[in-house]
Write a protein that binds this DNA or RNA. Structure first.
Length: 341
DNA sequence: GAACCGTGGAG
DNA sequence: TCTCCAAGGTT
């Protein structure tokens, strides 16, 4: 047996969950619980599970029930195709759930992982699972470089799960891996001190538990809204500050900016006096696309003469038509200021 | 491979 | 308030 499995099973015997309401109650109960737990947290599923099993205590009872009755006991859980598939499958299999992996997978609502779970935890046969918990544990332990939902990563993780799952006690191993993921190897603040796999865990060794597993890539690039102070004096000059040499727009001149209008106005008051009444006017937003995000800049025009306030940043008063170095969106804003007049 | 399916909890 | 995502599977 792989040392990984030995350590995991030893931990499970002492610290795993052994009192979940669907444990050790046979293939039917395992099946119902597995379907109910798809994309659903344990604490959410438990009351539904109790009601469901009380009303449909056996495969035959479920097969003989009305679909509306089954759906009524699923009401509130979501993903209602799961309930319809349960009912359909109960009528399909005729008295007993198959043991064969392919036969299980052929049933509606049962995929590769659920089929493995039914074999391992329901029938007591050899079976391999790869659910969200196991993915997280294995992704961290192996240092999986990609989002675990992608096809390449899934292929690697399935192969890893197959190689690590012991022939004996594969049901306990499956439960142990889920318990690890649910109680120790959580998405945030994992308790690595208590983990039996910490010694050779890639994420642990490299201090990357917070970065792994790699999150799902965002489909739309995020939009950052920034508020720009367009401070103009009586000579119609604009106040700009030089950005640090490193980072975005390094060394270029930009208006002071903040994450919110309130923060910007606070900042503006700091330039004048804490109790100053700031008269401001919103200018048309400036949009700018970067490689990794979209900038939505909200310029706020404040007309006031320069003060003696010194900020710890090199600054300049420039006319909008000057050729000082500014990034494209600031250049665009300055040209709009010229047109505006 | 991506969209879709539901609801509730966490941060 | 809002995003992310949780014991996945189907189309």
């Amino acid at each position: 047996m792989h040392p990984f499995a030995i350590r995991t099973l030893a931990w499970f015997d002492q610290h795993g969950r052994h009192d979940l309401p669907w444990q050790g109650r046979g293939p039917y109960v395992t099946w119902v619980s597995e379907i109910m737990l798809q994309q659903t947290q344990v604490t959410t599923a438990i009351p539904y599970f109790e009601r469901f099993i009380a009303r449909f205590p056996s495969l035959d009872a479920l097969a003989g029930a009305e679909l509306d009755d089954v759906l009524a006991h699923w009401s509130g859980l979501g993903y209602y195709a799961r309930a319809r598939n349960l009912h359909k499958t109960a009528q399909l299999v005729g008295g007993e759930l198959p043991q064969d992996l392919d036969a299980l997978e052929a049933l509606p609502g049962i995929g590769r992982s659920t089929a493995g779970a039914i074999r391992a935890m329901g029938h007591g046969l050899y079976g391999v699972i790869l659910d969200g918990n196991v993915k997280r544990v294995l992704a961290r332990h192996s240092g999986e470089p990609e989002w675990p939902g992608g096809s390449a990563a899934q292929k690697r993780l399935w192969a890893l799960a197959e190689s690590l799952t012991p022939r004996e006690r594969s049901g306990d191993f499956a439960q142990a891996m889920m318990d690890l993921g649910a109680t120790l190897c959580t998405r945030s603040r994992p308790q690595c001190q208590r983990c039996p796999l910490a010694d050779d865990c890639h994420a642990r060794r490299h201090g990357r538990t917070a970065e792994l597993p790699v999150p799902k890539p965002k489909k739309t690039t995020p939009t950052k809204t920034r508020w720009w102070l367009i401070w103009r004096d009586d000579q119609r000059r604009i106040y700009l500050e030089r950005r640090p040499d490193s980072g975005l727009w390094g060394g270029l001149f930009c208006p002071p900016e903040a994450d919110s209008l309130d923060a910007l106005l606070d900042d503006t008051r700091a330039l004048f006096s804490p109790s100053a009444q700031i008269d401001w006017q919103a200018l048309p937003a400036i949009e700018h696309a970067f490689s990794h995000y979209r900038l939505d800049a909200r310029p706020i025009l404040v007309s006031a003469n320069s003060t003696d306030t010194v900020r710890d940043t090199p600054s300049a008063w420039v006319w909008p038509d000057s050729d000082i170095a500014t990034p494209a969106p600031v250049t665009r804003l300055l040209s709009q200021l010229i047109d505006h007049d």
